[in-house]
């Protein structure tokens, strides 16, 4: 089984996010393969949810498109299973807790293992509540990714001390979405985390340009980009493959230079 740490074998990681089933699952599959070819180190696939409270308007709209297009948790698992054989990099799910809870966590983890999902990112499951699914994740060898935010302050050490896979460092206040500039002192957040953990730290939220990606990767182990890619998909729909490939290639190269 591919592990999250494999994403960091070749140095800094560029981590793209797309919403599963936006605009349909066939396109998601094509995009995953294209992003792998373009140099993505790990792929985050969003499980669409009706009320994604951590997302800005761009990813909210992607969730709406995916659900309107008939994407369900089962169909998403089926698609991931079908692409698994061709994937050489780790795949993680970004999902709100209710789809996992509702599906039944044991069954959810079983299916993750079957189709090669290495980890979960659950934005509405903070440190205090991670016990909800942590045991079940561990029994299945799935890593539960922890998040730290600009407001975390002294919590950073507590969270990072138990973090696994990689540590997701939220760059700014607010929801996901493209930002002109990132003003948080990312460097000191990462330094605090590194006092207590050896796992890679990656920065996400608000990154869209190669310059931003490089800047964030310089201070951490990688950059995560969602909204900027989802925007391309919103514009080009089923014909997004070439555009997403070009964008990811440019971003991955920026992270590696």
């Amino acid at each position: 089984m591919i592990k999250i740490k494999d994403a960091f074998k070749n140095g800094k990681a560029f981590i793209p996010f797309i919403t599963g089933g936006d605009p349909d699952l066939e396109t998601t599959k094509e995009l995953m393969l294209a992003m792998q070819e373009a140099g993505a180190a790990l792929i985050e696939v969003g499980v669409p949810f009706s009320d994604p409270i951590a997302e800005g308007p761009v990813i909210q709209a992607a969730d709406d498109r995916a659900l309107a297009g008939g994407c369900t948790t089962d169909r998403l698992f089926d698609m991931i299973a079908s692409v698994q054989g061709e994937m050489r990099i780790p795949m993680v799910f970004m999902t709100y807790i209710n789809p996992v809870f509702s599906y039944g966590q044991e069954k959810f983890m079983d299916r993750c293992v079957e189709c090669g999902i290495s980890g979960l990112i659950v934005p509405d499951l903070p440190y205090e509540e991670k016990g909800e699914i942590l045991e079940s994740c561990h029994r299945h060898g799935i890593e539960l990714v922890s998040m730290i935010a600009p407001t975390s302050e002294e919590r950073i050490r507590t969270i990072a001390g138990e973090a696994e896979g990689f540590l997701y460092c939220v760059s700014s206040l607010g929801v996901t979405g493209v930002r002109r500039s990132i003003t948080t002192d990312i460097g000191s957040m990462i330094r605090m985390a590194r006092e207590v953990t050896d796992i890679p730290c990656c920065v996400g939220f608000g990154i869209s340009t190669p310059e931003q990606a490089k800047e964030m990767a310089d201070r951490s182990d990688g950059a995560i980009v969602g909204s900027a890619i989802v925007k391309i998909i919103a514009e080009h729909g089923r014909d997004s493959k070439k555009y997403v490939y070009d964008y990811v290639k440019e971003m991955a190269e920026a992270v590696h230079t």
């Binding site: 409270i53 951590a54 807790i97 934005p123 509405d124 499951l125 903070p126 440190y127 205090e128 509540e129 016990g131 909800e132 998040m147 730290i148 935010a149 600009p150 407001t151 975390s152 302050e153 919590r155 969270i159 939220v170 206040l173 607010g174």
Partner: peptide, 22 residues
């Protein structure tokens, strides 16, 4: 499981990390 603000199995604090300190 976190026992803060629980009513039997219900309640809890299922929010983003950004809001936790608040």
């Amino acid at each position: 499981m976190n026992n803060e603000g629980r009513f039997g199995p219900y309640g809890g604090q299922y929010i983003t990390e950004t809001l936790m300190n608040a």
